[in-house]
Each structure stands twice: as structure tokens, then as C-alpha cells.
Amino acid sequence: MPPTVAAPKRRFGGTPAQILSALKFYKVLAYATGSMLLLLCLELVLRYGFQSVLMAGGTNSVTGASHGLGFVSIDGGVMAVAGGVNLSTLVLIVHGWMYVIYLIADFRLWSLMRWSFGKLVLIALGGVVPFLSFIVEGRIHKEVLGEVAANPKAGKRY
């Protein structure tokens, strides 16, 4: 009979409470970043497909009338509305900063779970590939809960 080899002990980089906290932070950021990425895709279709941007406020340069909320054509890179807030550009900026925070959440969870570097890359791709953050988040959530439940003493570091 061959000798039985015990499975290696699973060790986490933190306690189960820290891991579940990181998982919750990651989940919130995954959904927020995924939603902003979908808005970003819509904005890019409007900008490059229909040559228009979403503007709030401002004044029409030609007629002098005030502009409320709506789409503005960008013919040759020039908008007919001066002033106001370009909501299309705001979506770009918010998604960019949200992705940075999403990467921090990814790194925190990855380091606490002590996963391979490839898994960090896969999780990070969730913020740049449309719909992927929702799919990856669901799988990661199940995996983390399963590993924490299967290894209750793995988080005891001292």
C-alpha cells in the first residue's frame, strides 16, 4: 500500500474576518467598475459612432440659447455648446479612478488568499473587458467562501 501524503496545509495571509472584509470590498468595486465600464462603452459608441457627447448646461455658441441636458454634436472636434459639464468626459475620468481602486481591492484579496499571480491578472482584466467583472466576481466570491469554509484554521497566523 503506497504511503498517504497529507494535503499541504492551506495558509491565508490574514484572518477569515479580514478575508471576508476584502471580499466585500472587492464585490462592491467589481460591480461599480463593471457598470462604469458599460457606461464607458456606451459613451465611446456615441462619441465615435454618432459624433456626439452628453452635455449638461452651457450656452449654444450659435444662437446664444441656454443648453440644458442633452447630446451635442462634435463636428470636426468643435462643440456648439460653450461652458457646461461634458458628462461623457466625466464618465471616462470616473471609470479610470474607479479602476485604480478596483485594482487595490483585487490586490488586497489576492494577497490575503495567497493565490498565484495569474489569478491576479485574471481578476484585474475584469475592469477592462465589458461584462467580465460580473462573471469573475461571481466565481471569485464562491471560491473564497469555499476556501475559507474548508480551511477554518488556515487564517490563524500566530
Rank of each mutant, 00 (worst) to 15 (best):
S66W: 04
S61H: 08
L103V: 09
E137L: 11
W110H: 14
N86A: 09
I93R: 02
F50T: 10
K24Q: 07
H95I: 02
R108C: 10
M36E: 04
S61K: 15
V94H: 04
I135L: 15
L112P: 05
S88G: 14
P3L: 01
L92P: 01
A80Q: 07
I140G: 09
L109D: 02
G127D: 07
D75I: 09
R10H: 02
F71C: 10
T63S: 15
R47V: 12
G68K: 00
A124R: 06
V78T: 08
Y99D: 01
A80R: 15
L125V: 04
N151H: 09
M113F: 04
S66G: 09
M98L: 12
V91L: 10
I74S: 13
T33D: 15
L125M: 06
S73Q: 03
V91I: 14
L69H: 13
R10M: 15
T63L: 06
V144H: 03
L29N: 12
G68H: 15
F71E: 07
G138S: 12
I123M: 13
L103R: 08
S111C: 07
F131V: 15
G83C: 05
G70E: 09
I104W: 14
L92E: 04
L122W: 12
L20Q: 12
K156G: 10
G58R: 11
L120E: 00
T63F: 07
T63R: 15
F107I: 11
Q51W: 03
A105V: 01
A150G: 09
A154C: 08
R108L: 10
G138L: 05
L92W: 14
Y102I: 00
K24W: 08
A30D: 07
T59S: 09
L40W: 00
V136K: 12
L38M: 14
K119M: 14
G68R: 02
L112C: 03
V78N: 09
V45E: 06
V94F: 03
V5A: 06
L103N: 11
F25D: 03
Y26K: 00
G83H: 03
V72Q: 08
L20D: 13
V5Q: 04
G146W: 13
S61G: 13
L37A: 01
F117W: 13
M55E: 13
N60H: 11
L87R: 08
V85F: 02
G155L: 05
A124G: 04
T59Y: 00
V85K: 04
L132Y: 10
A17D: 13
S35Q: 00
I140Q: 11
R139D: 11
S21M: 08
I123C: 07
S111A: 05
A124Q: 11
I19N: 07
L145R: 14
D106L: 03
C41A: 15
H141I: 04
Y99I: 06
V72P: 04
V128K: 03
L54S: 06
L39P: 02
L90Q: 01
F117C: 06
G57C: 09
L39E: 01
Y48M: 08
E137P: 08
A56V: 01
K27N: 13
K142T: 13
L54E: 10
P16T: 00
E147M: 09
L69K: 11
A65H: 02
G126S: 15
A22D: 02
V121F: 10
L109E: 05
V129A: 09
A65V: 03
Q51F: 08
S116R: 04
G68A: 14
G34Q: 03
S133G: 01
